[in-house]
Structures are given as C-alpha cells and as structure tokens.
C-alpha cells in the first residue's frame, strides 16, 4: 500500500510543567526509512513515547499504522519495534534467551519465538556468540542484539533511537547498512533518530528535522542534498597576488561562473558541468597560484539549521521564563 502514512501527527503538543517538549508538530511520514534529526532535547524521545502510546499528548493527535496512539497503544506496540538509545541488556543471559523472552513479550508463541529469534539474530549478523552471556559483548554486538529484539516480532515499523551511538566508524557504517536493509530487504518501515545529520542523509529516504519541539523541515533526502553540486577550492597566495582567494574569485567571475566566498579561505563555484574543472585549473595556472584542494561539495543537512535563523534561540526564552515561574 504505497502512499499510506505510517506515522501521522496533527498539531501534536506535549507540555511538561517546565518545558514544552513538542510544539504543534504536524508531520506525515510514509513507508521507507525516515530520519528524525534534532539536537539533544529537541523532542525526539518525547515523540517516540507518544507514538508508542506511553505518554498522553497535551494537545493534538498521533496515528501510527493508522491507529490512534492515545487509545490503541497496545495494538500499536504489537506491530511496532523499539530500540532504545541506552544499554538495556542484562549481562548474565545469552542473546538467544533474551531475544526469545522479548519475542514472547510481544505475543509470539513459544516455538515461533525461537524460530524468529534464530532468524533475526542471523539477519543482524550475530552467529556463534549468540549463546554466550551478553556481558562479554562488544558495543557493536550489543547494538545488534538491541536491534534484533526490536525486529523479532516482525513489526511493520521500527523506531530506532540513536542506533549508531558509541560505535566506531566501521561499526557505524555496518549499522547504517543494516538499517537500510530493514526497509529494502525486510520491508519494514524505519524511523531512525540521530543528532549526527550526515549519517542520516546516506540512509534515509526522508528527513524530518525538529528543534525545540517544532518541525523545521520535512522533505525527501534527495531534495536536501541535490540542490547544488558545487566545488570548494582553496589556493595559496603568491607575491603577485597577495590575496590569492580574492584573485581567483575575480578571475572565475570574469569567466562567467557563479562564485561565492566560503568559510575561511574557501571559494565555492557552482559546478554545472565538467567544464568547470578545466576552467578552475586554467584560472589558477594563469594566476600562478598553488592549489591546496578542490573538492566536490554538497549541501549538508546541517545547513538546515543555519537556514532556519533564530529557531533554537526563540525557543529558549519561553523555557527560561517557564523555569523561573516554576521556581518562584
């Protein structure tokens, strides 16, 4: 059923006595891998709690898999998997025993729980070590078990809270690959949170950015990053051109390219086609400058925060006020 919403919120608001965790959040998330991006305290965990029907919303509604999270929490949790951010594994039991127990907690009969556990642990890449107590596992293995317990009951949607936390770069890549497979191979929709924006743009079909409980953006990953392919160039100064960066900017502008000044001594040039590379090389050679680097540059998701001026700051003020009121 393509096009059907997996998660749908309407003016979802959650106020705690001192903080507004979610502020009229309206999103519509379809099947696929969706990245939920936000800094710590942006409301990601609160959103997950409400989606699972574990905390009531102050205002607004949330529907998961077409079910109302306020009234049908039990039915939602039967078909949704959740992987918490923090450690949650008892050290003295094996991965197999633990995941079987969790499968039964999701309502799977005993034999089905065993079969699904064996399957799922294999899919997340845990083999012989699954019979050993989990206390001796590496962080990467623990993350796999946490993922397995979220998938063992074959949910239609999994909520992964910071699944790459604490992993080294290789482990991070493996985990991101696994997350991708959850959708492409297993057919399960994924909502994955992270405060590391770069890693989500490689994994997700769709990105939702929240900050201070409010929606900053919700759009496909492609539209985030496709906008402009540009080159970042850094050059040396020379005696003839004490300001090499300025000279290059002028020279490229003369040749009819759209040039902007980047951070530090970087020059950004819009790379419409291959000809740009030659033009840049020629311009630098003509000026007699040294080329330090020239790299392809895409807009990173990080820039959406810069694009939304004052959003975090505007949010701080009411919090601080609320805090003071509560204190007096």
């Amino acid at each position: 059923m393509p096009g059907v919403s997996v998660i749908e919120t309407e003016s979802l608001t959650k106020r705690y006595p001192k903080v507004t965790a979610l502020d009229r959040l309206t999103v519509d998330i379809g099947p696929g891998v969706t990245g939920l991006v936000g800094a710590n305290g942006a409301g990601k965990s609160t959103l997950i709690k409400i989606l699972l029907g574990l905390a009531p919303a102050t205002e607004g509604t949330a529907r998961v898999l077409g079910k109302d999270s306020a009234t049908e929490g039990g039915a939602i949790r039967e078909r949704v998997g959740y992987m918490p951010e923090h450690d949650c594994l008892p050290p003295d039991v094996s991965a197999t025993e633990f995941v079987v127990h969790m499968a039964r907690m999701s309502g799977l009969p005993r034999t089905a729980a065993r079969e699904r556990t064996a399957d799922t642990l294999r899919h997340v890449g845990l083999y012989e070590e699954r019979y050993r107590p989990m206390g001796g596992y590496s962080t990467g293995m623990k993350q796999r078990v946490k993922l397995a317990q979220a998938l063992v009951h074959d949910p239609r949607l999994v909520l992964l809270d910071e699944p790459t936390n604490g992993l080294d770069p290789a482990g991070r890549d493996e985990m991101l690959g696994l997350i991708r497979r959850i959708h492409t191979d297993f057919g399960i929709s994924v909502l994955v949170t992270s405060h590391l924006l770069g890693e989500l743009e490689r994994t997700s079909d769709h990105i939702v950015v929240v900050d201070g409980g409010r929606l900053l953006r919700s759009q496909t990953t492609a539209s985030f990053t496709e906008a402009t392919a540009s080159l970042a160039i850094e050059v040396t100064d020379s005696d003839a051109h004490p300001d090499g960066t300025g000279a290059l900017t002028a020279a490229l502008a003369d040749r009819g390219f759209a040039v902007t000044a980047g951070a530090g001594h970087l020059v950004h040039v819009e790379a419409a086609d291959e000809a740009v590379y030659d033009a840049v090389r020629d311009a630098i050679a003509d000026l007699g400058l040294g080329l330090i680097r020239m790299e392809q540059r895409r807009h990173r998701i990080a820039e959406v925060f810069q694009d939304a001026p004052d959003a975090p700051r505007a949010q701080d003020t009411p919090h601080a006020l609320a805090g003071q009121e509560a204190a007096t």
């Binding site: 699972l52 574990l54 039990g74 949790r77 039967e78 949704v80 998997g81 959740y82 918490p84 949650c88 969790m102 907690m105 999701s106 309502g107 317990q149």
Partner: peptide
C-alpha cells in the same frame, strides 16, 4: 523500556 514498548 523494552517491556513497556510491547503490548503489556
């Protein structure tokens, strides 16, 4: 949390 994210 693993228990409470399940039907019980």
């Amino acid at each position: 949390p693993l228990y409470f994210s399940r039907p019980i």
